[in-house]
Amino acid sequence: MAVLGRSGAGKSTLIRCINRIVEPDEGEIVWNDRSITGMNPQQLRSIRGEIGMVFQHFNLLPRLSVWTNVIAGRFARMHRLRSLVGVFSKEDRMHALSALREVGLEALARRRVEELSGGQKQRVAIARVLMQQPTLLLGDEPISSLDAVTAKRVMTFIAALHRERGMTVVLNLHDVAMARAYATRIIGVTAGRITFDGTPEQLGDKELRIIYPPDEEDAISSKNIEGNDSRVSSKSHQVDESIQQRGLRL
């Protein structure tokens, strides 16, 4: 599932509310019949261990090795003392190596993450997610910092995770073409509200104008250039009430 919307529309907030990195003000978030919003801190840590997340700027642990970054994906499941002193079990170490092998970075396990390229860093972040063995993968603009070729490679890898492991994937994307190519469902967010929920085929120009409304500045420059009013009607800003009422279901 891809989430589309302008910068500041609320895409990141939506994604981050799912694992409560951002605390939602109201409403309920349910995953696998469990209310995430109703969980205490310990339950929350445990469910976070089952929800993978990749970030735009990778959010790797600086000055630490690739291997340590990957094994961090296991924090929620390992003994607290082990994670505190950094002595990991053989099982965890084997899992980390296998995750690194899967993303093709086994040879770089001992390198510091600062020494990697953008694409390699995102693969480390994905290996960290693989360590979690999640049923849900969240991505906050995971390909925005990557070049076109690397972005495509990362998206293909994520699509394979969905296809082969049945992992539910929810990604914030800026690239509509990528969303159309890889997603089976697209959510449009405009000014903090869901304004589109459908398949890539249903996402036409009209829907895109709703998801990406021109702001005042665009409207003024459009007026100056064309001598006409902005082509987007005020109706297109209206939110589909039925979507708002039934809520967002993954």
Partner: peptide, 24 residues
């Protein structure tokens, strides 16, 4: 960023300090 990452994998506040803050 790194602090968010540790939280996102289910890390405790102490782990956030240890892996997300101290190395920086």
């Amino acid at each position: 960023g790194p602090q968010e990452a540790v939280k996102a994998v289910g890390g405790t506040r102490l782990l956030v300090a240890l892996y997300g803050i101290i190395p920086q």
